[in-house]
Every structure is written in C-alpha cells, then in structure tokens.
Design a protein around this nucleic acid. Structure first.
Lengths: 161, 161
DNA sequence: TAAGATTGACGCATCAATCTTA
DNA sequence: TAAGATTGATGCGTCAATCTTA
C-alpha cells in the first residue's frame, strides 16, 4: 500500500473500508459456504425473516432491507425455495405482492448456522475491537445510508404457493 | 430491519458494516462508471500503480494489494490494457513475473477521475463523520486484515509487451 | 400509469486446471 | 516442486424489458 499520507484522509479511510470488507467477507463467506452451504446474503435474508413478524416479509421489503435489487432477491429466494428453507406466500389484499415465508426447516437451518457464523464474525471482525470500540463502530457505520423498512400490506394473509 | 438489540452487538455491527458497504459502493460505483468508465476496482488499481515506484507493480503484488485473486487481476488488467491505461512490462531477472505499468494515458485518466471520485467519496462517506471520527474510523478499520505489500523483484527492468 | 415480480443478457470475480519458468 | 500468469466453467448480482394486478 502506498503511504496513506499521500492519499488524503478521505481516500485513506475509504480504501481501508473497501479492503476490510473484501478481506473479512472473503473468509467469512468461504467458511459459511463450506460449513452450511449458505451465502452471506442467504444468511442475511434468513436473519431478516427469522426476526420478522410471522417470519415472513414482502419480497420488496426484503430486497430493500438487504440492499438487493428486485431481480436479485428473486434469484436469491429461488435458491432458498429450492432448498426448502423458504416458501412463497400471497397477500389476500393485493395480488401483486408475494411474501417470502421462512419454513420450519429454514428456521432450523438458520439456528444451526448462526452459532458458528456469529463465532466467525467474532473471530474475524469483532475481536479486533474492545466493547466500547465496537459500539462506536456500530454507531458510525449506522450513519451511512441504510435500508428503510417500509410497513407491510395490512391485510396480511398467506397461502402456500 | 429487526430491532438491533435482539441480534447481539457483534452481529449488529457486522450487518451495519455489510449494509453500509453495499449502499455506498453501489452509488459510488454507478457514478464512477457513468462519468469515467471505471470500476471501483479499476480505480483502486490505478491508484496503487500511480503511487508505486516507477508507476509499476508486479501483477502478484498488485493482486494482493487490492485483494483480488490472481485470475481476477489478470482479467481486470486485460480491460485496462485494452483501454490503453496500462501496459505489460517484463522483469529481466525473472521471466515468470510480469509487471503492470501505468501509461501516461492511464495517469491522466486517473487524475481526471480522481477529483470527482474523491468528491463523491466525500459526499457519500466522509461527510457523515467529523474529522476526528473519520480518523477513528480509519484506525479501527485499519485493524482488520489488510493486504501485505511484498517487495518487488530486485533486478527491475521493463520492456514493452 | 405505476408497483411488484420475473426473465434474459451481461459483468465481475472466483476456483480448478494448465502452461511456463525458477 | 513451486511461483507467476492465464484460461474455462461457474456463481452471484445488475440493468432493461416484460407480465400481471392496482
């Protein structure tokens, strides 16, 4: 790396950010894939569904939440549906919207993957910081553009697809 | 997003990190692509070369520096070479190694792109933090696994490809 | 007209395998 | 044997276009 001084503070911090993401993400992704057959995005989606009311979310909202495009979420959910972790649900009040519903198998899958993945996150990410530093980091990162959770359709009903 | 409290501090900070990267990266990448026809990785590589001695680096070292695989750096440089921003160079002391050499056109290109890109980084990233906070962030992120710059081949010579 | 979802074509990066040179 | 570089096959995510329903 060139001397960070010559790059300016903005660029230096940004490049650190990019490299840190690439490095941590690569290793974390490799482990999660090898041990549980899940992508980082898969895991992220499963977490969102797990904590959602009735363990379901509109596909649109899910896409916004994990910052994927509409087509991206379709393709990701295709995989999770084929695996049986997620199934489709419909909204009785608006036939356009489709839900992603976490199945029991999916919930088990997440629970199984969670422990080791969180441990990996601890090892590769959190352990580099003290508890206070982690809070600071969390707060600082939280200022960057995040997804806005939009409320779901009011007449929430579900059917198997 | 589910209440962050239910996720635990480690996972919360990590997910913030992932989202922040996705959001900032997407917008930054779109602008850089539209205005200068460069990928974020392209820009990163050009910056490394620009600050390297003689504006050249071994392809291996470049790959480590920007955290790309060997094949990744080959493909990225293919594009930059086709565009004329980079050319190949050889090492007289070891015929296995190949250099990536920044051309004058490439240097101009970087200089042209740099101003607006750094401005974009400022707008989308740095401006969310005070000067002190940015330094803290830089330091914290710098603790995560980074690339290790390895010294280059001693008998450094260069030929046009 | 617009919102949600899907599909086709494409780009970027990876791994595994191969080739050349040390 | 190993290091550096490249190529083929593949995975994930995007945009643009399309379809259905509001």
């Amino acid at each position: 790396l060139p001397t960070q001084a010559s790059l300016g503070a903005d660029l230096s911090a940004w490049l650190h950010f990019l490299r840190a993401h690439a490095a941590v993400t690569r290793e974390l992704s490799a482990r999660l894939e090898a041990e549980h057959g899940l992508t980082l995005s898969d895991f992220d989606v499963l977490v969102q569904l797990y904590h959602a009311p009735e363990r379901q979310l509109r596909r649109v909202d899910l896409a916004r939440s994990v910052l994927l495009s509409a087509s991206g979420i379709t393709r990701l959910l295709d995989g999770l549906e084929r695996a049986g972790w997620v199934r489709k649900g419909t909204c009785s009040a608006d036939a356009r919207v489709s839900y992603a519903v976490l199945t029991d198998a999916g919930a088990s899958r997440l629970e199984a993957a969670r422990e080791s993945h969180v441990a990996d996150i601890g090892e590769l990410f959190s352990s580099r910081f003290s508890h206070e530093e982690l809070e600071v980091l969390d707060e600082l990162l939280g200022r960057l553009p995040l997804a806005d959770t939009t409320p779901a359709c009011s007449g929430d009903d579900e059917q198997a697809a």
